[in-house]
Design a protein around this nucleic acid. Sequence first.
DNA 1: ATGACCTGTTTAACAGGA
Length: 260
Amino acid sequence: MKIATWNVNSVKARADHVERYLSEAKPDVLCLQELKCVDENFPAERYEALGYNCAVHGQKTYNGVAILSRFPLEDVTRGLPGDSKDEQARYIEAVISTDDGVVRVGSIYLPNGNPTPGEKYDYKLKWMARLKAHAAKLLALEEPLVLCGDYNVIPGPDDVWDAKAWADDALYLPETRAAFRAIEYLGFTSAIEATQSEPHLYTFWDYQRGAWQKDHGIRIDHLMLSPQAADRLSQSGIDKATRGWERPSDHVPVWCELSA
DNA sequence: ATGACCTGTTTAACAGGA
């Protein structure tokens, strides 16, 4: 079972790219972030025509997340639990039923948090605390679980082209990385870290300053696996080629394969 | 050269991203 995640930076601008990726990479599940559209404008018909079911949690202009699956989607949760007043569409979760059993999947668009310090950084840390609390509840279910998406966290110095250049950024501050580790240490395995050995693998390259051409990237998109999912992890990958497509997203897809 | 982008919306500059 192949599970992929991709921040598309507007699903309207990237509708063709998503269709091409589904056709070529053939993931069983594709989590999307930064749709930047309301539910009614999500191009579900195009992906249903390719055999995918769609669960969407959209928002006008900003944020927006979705889960596409070749298998049925059940028990869909829209919005991260823990704050009923939070109106930002940054989390959707569903249970995927396959012939080999169920896998619970969450599509995450964690807040950026810049500038620091400030309200936006406070919101990021509070959101991460809520994610930790929710993740702990899900782990207690003791089932295959993949919480994947744009975490907006650079885990360590080997996950950025120049750590010094990011030292004061909300994606790399010690408090950000500590909050990420606190989630990871609940018992998650990072798919890329468990199956790739070389450092400096990136999932995002800024549109500015020729970052892609100079390979000035960062690794901020992650697939975090529960023990029951990690037991089945066979391989993972980062589909860099999409960054070279015409009018690309600044993020590329990241995926993992769970054996039966 | 301490420069250089992209998207949606309010359609001309903004906000927000990372």
